[in-house]
Write a protein that binds this DNA or RNA. Structure first.
Length: 290
DNA sequence: CAGCCGTGGCG
DNA sequence: TCGCCAAGGCT
């Protein structure tokens, strides 16, 4: 098993193939990086771009967002999906405003303490905003390392200690190089070493790739269960929230019937939205955004 | 810790 | 067509 990836080849490829993205522009602040990272969680770049632009124009700093209502964030979030992320970003802005003097904290631990910031996002902000060495293990990096180093088409479902150790061991020692290496490997996974149809002929590390050398054997692990969506509570929640989001003012509770037929499911979904704080019930019986 | 949490584009 | 999936996090 190769013990490392050719850093020069990866950095060289990245320099020539990297996409121009607003949150990667020179001089963007840590808030911009944080916002982009949260929006990009499980969400394609193309869908994030327009929302990111609107968001940063309206809330260029954490205190600016904290000063507005969480519902404003939910509305601006639009159809990005997983709207609790909008709520968490607003909550994070509030914590930043109140506990960190309005600036995104610089330590991994403090970042990790922000709502919606998990292991990946804390590492990403540490590396991409503050240019410090951090193990950035997202789905792209995991897939690239799995293939190039372990000869497996896909990584395991959950990150293991061994996997994190491996990622740490191949991360360049220098802060700045490590940060660029991480975004480069992510970009490689996003553009070349893709999940469905990898373009090995265009890969800068194909020559040393264990998976390719083994003849690109198919994934042999436990089957990953496909999640249904149509007819689920998730879809129902989305419909109801869409109703609230697209209305300029709170809507009569009775109106949500138009969003979903099945009553039992409709009630359950609404209750969960209320529990999540994504919707609020007014005294007059209407429903609105928080 | 396995399950839950949206959405839309693509092969 | 429809299953798969896209820079995860939380409980």
């Amino acid at each position: 098993m190769p013990e490392s990836l050719p850093t020069a080849a990866i950095l060289g490829w990245y320099a020539g193939h990297r996409r121009t993205l607003p949150w990667r522009e020179a001089g963007v602040g840590s808030w911009a990086v944080l916002v982009s990272e949260v929006m990009l969680q499980q969400t394609p770049v193309a869908r994030v771009l327009p929302v990111y632009d609107s968001w940063m124009r309206r809330w260029p700093t954490p205190p600016a967002l904290a000063a507005d209502q969480p519902g404003d964030a939910v509305r601006m979030w639009g159809r990005l999906g997983y709207p609790r992320r909008a709520l968490r970003l607003h909550a994070a802005a509030t914590v930043i405003d109140e506990l960190h003097d309005g600036s995104v904290p610089t330590t991994y631990e403090a970042l990790r303490g922000l709502p919606g910031v998990g292991e990946y996002t804390a590492a990403a902000v540490t590396a991409f905003a503050y240019r410090r060495r951090a193990v950035v293990l997202d789905t792209n990096v995991r897939r690239v390392l799995s293939r190039a180093l372990e000869g497996r088409q896909f990584p395991s479902r959950q990150v293991t200690v061994a996997e994190r150790d491996l990622a740490e061991s191949v991360l360049p020692p220098d802060d700045e190089t490590a940060a660029t290496w991480s975004v480069a490997v992510m970009e490689l996974g996003a553009l070349v070493c893709t999940a469905a149809t990898p373009r090995c002929e265009a890969c800068p590390v194909a020559a040393g790739c264990a998976w390719r050398a083994a003849g690109r054997p198919p994934y042999d692990g436990p089957a990953r269960r496909a999640r249904p969506y149509v007819g689920t509570d998730r879809q129902c929640r989305g419909r109801i929230l869409g109703l609230l989001r697209d209305s300029d003012e709170p809507v009569p509770a009775a109106d949500i019937v138009t969003a979903w037929d099945d009553e039992e499911q409709r009630i359950r979904a609404l209750d969960s939205l209320l529990a999540d704080g994504l919707a609020v019930a007014l005294r007059d019986g209407r429903l609105g955004l928080p």
